[in-house]
């Protein structure tokens, strides 16, 4: 930290105030609005919204399906992205930059474009479906299903996994690897006894963020399966913009429950992911 005089202090605060104002107006206030609406029913304060969701097999089912898909795709992404990130680490800096920028474009390749691409490849008469049928591996494959969602989610989850794990690999410095090699450790032994234990907190953190990312995915699921998928975000979207099922307060209640489910592990992950020299 650098000491400054009174005048400098005022100028410096003036630089920070627009940012704080925007965060307040476009992040804190919207969250507060959702939370407030969730405890109102037909204009009067009530917990009926919560009772309705927690007592409904349909809505609880949405939480269960979202949870399973998110956990599964987070695990798939972690297992696939980890070795890729390790290989990427050994590439020249320029190549690393380019791959990371493209991974970022890929993680944002969601919604209608992504759903449509997968329908072309793996839909009823998609190229990959046809190849697999010709090879006699499958009889048919329904992309518009929970299994289909797992495939499509895995696409952007793996890319996000690379983006999340890559920086953490900085903790495995060349001298640690050298030391292990000198003492006769094989690659396998190195990762099992040294590499993985060092990275374990970061990997756990990455897993949580991947899980949260899948829980919050709306556009892709909406584009691929629409209201047929019983997911939390799909139900929220339907309660907000639907013609038949519109109930804004109930939508806000589901949204609040979703945030509660996510915020507890994420706050925990913050402590796990924090670099050791964070007081710098």
């Amino acid at each position: 930290m650098i000491e400054i005089g009174r005048r400098g202090r005022i100028i410096a605060w003036a630089c920070a105030i627009p940012f704080l104002a925007v965060i307040f107006l476009f992040e804190v206030m919207p969250l507060a609005a959702v939370l407030t609406n969730s405890v109102f029913k037909e204009g009067v304060p009530s917990v009926l919204n919560y009772a309705e969701i927690l007592g409904s097999r349909f809505y609880l089912g949405a939480f269960r399906v979202s949870f399973s898909i998110s956990l599964l795709t987070a695990l798939i992404a972690l297992v696939v992205a980890f070795p890729i990130a390790i290989i990427l680490r050994r590439m020249p800096g320029r190549v690393q930059d380019i791959i990371l920028v493209f991974s970022n474009i890929g993680t944002n390749f969601t919604g209608y474009p992504l759903a449509f691409a997968f329908v072309i490849l793996m839909g009823v008469s998609g190229s990959i479906t046809l190849l697999l049928i010709e090879a006699g591996l499958v009889k048919d494959f329904n992309i518009y299903s929970t299994a289909g969602l797992v495939f499509v989610y895995s696409y952007f989850q793996i890319l996000l996994g690379i983006l999340l794990i890559f920086p953490a690999l900085g903790a495995i410095t060349p001298d640690i690897e050298e030391a292990a090699k000198l003492m006769g450790a094989s690659r396998w032994l190195f990762w099992r006894r040294i590499g993985l234990p060092i990275l374990a907190p970061s990997l756990a953190g990455a897993l949580l963020l991947l899980f949260a990312n899948a829980m919050g995915t709306y556009a892709t699921a909406e584009a691929l399966v629409g209201s047929g998928a019983n997911l939390v975000t799909i139900r929220i979207g339907e309660l907000t913009a639907g013609d038949v099922f519109s109930d804004p307060n109930l939508a806000d209640t589901m949204a609040t429950l979703l945030v509660i489910i996510l915020i507890i592990p994420i706050v925990a992950a913050q402590f796990l992911l924090k670099p050791k020299d964070s007081n710098a």
Partner: peptide, 29 residues
Amino acid sequence: CYFPILDRWMGALIILPYAVPSIVLALGL
């Protein structure tokens, strides 16, 4: 540079979009 306390708060605020899906913030807006 000047406000370590503000910096710590920013670090926390910035993780919020991960915990709060965009559809939730969109509802609020």
